[in-house]
Nucleic acid binder design. Structure first.
Lengths: 189, 189
DNA sequence: CCGTTTTCTTGATTTTTATCAAGTAGCTTG
DNA sequence: CAAGCTACTTGATAAAAATCAAGAAAACGG
């Protein structure tokens, strides 16, 4: 079983048959550090599953890069609106490291419902989980200080925090690198 | 056609037959100001569509109320995680005014896929729209100042801003009522 | 319509966080 | 290994926003 199959299995409780049908639609691919999985303003025509490595999702705002999230092993990634509605993507998605992914094309993705009867229900549950994560994140912004927010994300995403340049972490937490640096110093004392 | 049917029609492009099948599963109901549609820690067993009035969604955090959103005419509202996974709801949902809603029970909601073949696809597109809104909101927190955020939300939700107590708006924007009051004064000068 | 309550505004002050600038540490690579 | 990057830390200062407190305005109930 590939990581993709294992992940699909643990997450979606597919049986062996469905598992193979789904994973057969994904193609393995490797991006080099700096390569883009998706560029802003282009249509998103693929969805990927991350096998290993780090993928930074960011937007350009008047010359500044705003990092929206860093995805890593076990994440499914796409610009959902762009994938579904064929609108221009708002995000750039760039490999921060060598990145091993499984890629499914839009056309195949759209046929999943025909191929696997329980796909729509499965996908809904998956989207609901994503919802929860986004709700948590919004809640962290309206109810926590920068310091609380840092700890909240650190607890939930330790694997990211030790590998990603501070400037990107800071941006996705809505604070500056200096602020994170000072929060970390407090920890040590 | 009821508002619910009109809304379903414009949003989901259902045909007349499906429209009636779906809307028949909703029951009209009126909540009085102060009544709760849902209480935190209870399971969410209903989804509602707001016909008129204001519904405040908030959580209690060590004695303080944190307002996550104010929903109004045309919104579908539920605690999605709780509705799907039967986990305890994290949100309180309280009517800020007399509130006219259409309510569908969990059991009926779960049968929509059987009743309307295109429901799963429709629901996915709907969820994708919600995703976009949440992404926008997260983006506003990581890339804007309080003032920019205020204007951003004001432009998108004028109907709410003129009807809702400042303290609730402030909370959902992640700032204090005093800050909003000062932002508004600037406008006038 | 009047008193009560709630909401909003304003000013003074404090706290938090950003900005600017300089220096340090750690990598990378020729 | 030395030069050049990049990332990180630290301090000084400025800006943004929160807090506290008091008063004004609006809404509400009898």
């Amino acid at each position: 079983m590939t990581d993709l199959e294992q992940y699909l299995h643990s997450y979606f409780t597919f049986d062996q048959d469905d598992l193979m049908k789904v994973s057969a639609l994904f193609k393995k691919k490797t991006l080099n550090k700096g390569d883009y999985f998706l560029k802003a303003d282009k249509k998103c025509n693929q969805l990927c599953f991350i096998q290993s490595g780090l993928l930074r999702i960011y937007a350009d705002v008047d010359g500044k890069e705003v990092t929206q999230w860093i995805s890593t092993q076990g994440y499914f990634v796409a610009d959902l609106s762009s994938l579904l509605f064929q609108t221009p993507s708002r995000w750039n998605m760039q490999a921060l490291t060598t990145l091993d992914i499984f890629v499914i094309e839009r056309a195949e993705y759209n046929r999943l419902g025909e191929i696997i009867p329980k796909w729509p229900e499965t996908e809904k549950l998956f989207l609901a989980h994503c919802f929860k994560m986004m709700e948590d994140r919004i809640f962290s912004f309206i109810s926590m200080t920068a310091e609380e927010r840092y700890h909240f994300f650190f607890e939930k995403n330790r694997e990211i925090f030790n590998q990603v340049p501070l400037q990107y972490l800071a941006s996705m937490l809505g604070m500056t690198p200096e602020t994170i640096s000072r929060i970390r110093r407090k920890q040590l004392m």
